[in-house]
Design a protein around this nucleic acid. Sequence first.
RNA 1: GCUCCCAUCGUCUAACGGUUAGGACGCGGCCCUCUCAAGGCCGUAGUACGGGUUCGAUUCCCGUUGGGAGCGCCA
Length: 478
Amino acid sequence: MLDSRIIMVNTSKKPRFRFAPSPTGYLHVGGARTALYNYLLARQLGGDFILRIEDTDLERSTPESIQAILDSMKWLKMEWDEGPYFQTKRFDLYNQYIDQLIKEKKAYPCFCTSQELEAKRALAQKEKRKPMYDRTCYKLSTSDVEKKISSGEKHCIRFHSHDEGSIIINDLVKGRVEIAEKELDDLIIRRTDGSPTYNFTVVIDDMTMGITHVIRGDDHLNNTPRQMQLYQAFGATPPQFAHLPLILGTDKKRLSKRHGATSVMAYYEMGYLPDALINYLARIGWAYKDQEVFTRQDLIEKFSIESVSKAAGVFNPEKLLWLNGLYIRESKPEDLAKLLPHYLEKRGIISNDTSLFVELVKISQEKSKTLEEMADLVDFAFKETRPDEALQNKFLGKENKPHLKLVYDRLEKLENFDIAGITNVFTTLVQETGLKLGQIAQPVRVALSGKNISPGIYEIIRILGKKTCLARISKYLE
RNA sequence: GCUCCCAUCGUCUAACGGUUAGGACGCGGCCCUCUCAAGGCCGUAGUACGGGUUCGAUUCCCGUUGGGAGCGCCA
């Protein structure tokens, strides 16, 4: 028996994958994962990765959404080999194929109005039937049809579906799925306004673009049988399908704005690294043994569609945060230094001191799970922050002033203002006074950074330099 | 309502008839420590339920329950 969950690679044909989002909103993480799996397989098999914008919904498609999709793909470094294609630029092509179906009597005009159809649907619901078009217009005589058309009556075009037999999908993820053709009604392929509909354009595009593998969300699984009928109508071999389970929110409901950030670019703004997001997304619904961390090359080599889970997965922001922290820790300081300015600018800090950025990254990367956190940790180097009242009371009150003064005096006298010298100031102070290091360091930390959470205090002092340190500390001595 | 899909710790998952059901996030404890992190060690928790098949079921089959998707002149 042939295992339906084996990816077939016809050596005579180059594998071609596509990602086909509709530009009706920002690219969300679920879509990004779909894109990723396509991208990974294309790279693994030496095939093509095609980007196609499915913008046939003229009402809801926007240029902003198109831009957001492109930006997201670029940020995630999923380079496409062809496209972006736009379906709105291919209407002539779709119309040729629709006309062909009409000529072959595989499609027919339908004069039913939306109101009439709505009424039929409502009735079906009421009678607990599955709402399906009743073929009123298919039953029209040829002369009636001609009469209506010549009198200019508005109509759409429906594909005439088969009623007997069944469609079998050998899905790479779901396995064998069978559906009776009588469950399928005559779908509209051309709207009254002349524009083609999704289930039709997707087939024409995949067919004419030579797509060999269609990997998409499993919300499309129910559409697949009717698409298969279309392939049959054109005598074409359908591509292999793989339907991915959805990504859900914490409450197991379909991911939406309620669940916090869902758009890819929101993660950029929150200070996530693209490779961390990619790594995390790959692991929702897919695993390779016990491995958690994958470089892009790992992913390309190890990903396999057959081991994608059939069940929906919950998006877990905590795990993504952990992964991001790990990626930040393991990144080269020079690389992070290039990314940091964007997050500093959001805090009103403008600088191009690259070597300072590198230094700041080095002292904060182990403490940062996001670049936003990192920016918060290192802003002391650019601006003086007044600690809030609670912090002042706790660390800069009367009992702390003598300690601060001690540090001030020693730093003032310090000749070699380097890490060794600075460390020595504190350690000798601890020895001489019998105070805990924390008792001395905390007030200094708050005075210099305005916060009780910061990089190492010695590093802060060194980076700030003697003059700035003394100026900031002196404000709390009176 | 009808059709289709799905079901292992709270979450992501490993197991492809025989394991003390493994790993990771999170959570708890201890160690380390100038704060916060990081790191180290230990711990916590799962096969939805009921029938079969089998010497043996997380694994195969059926049903129940629960979740999801579709049933648009949206994609």
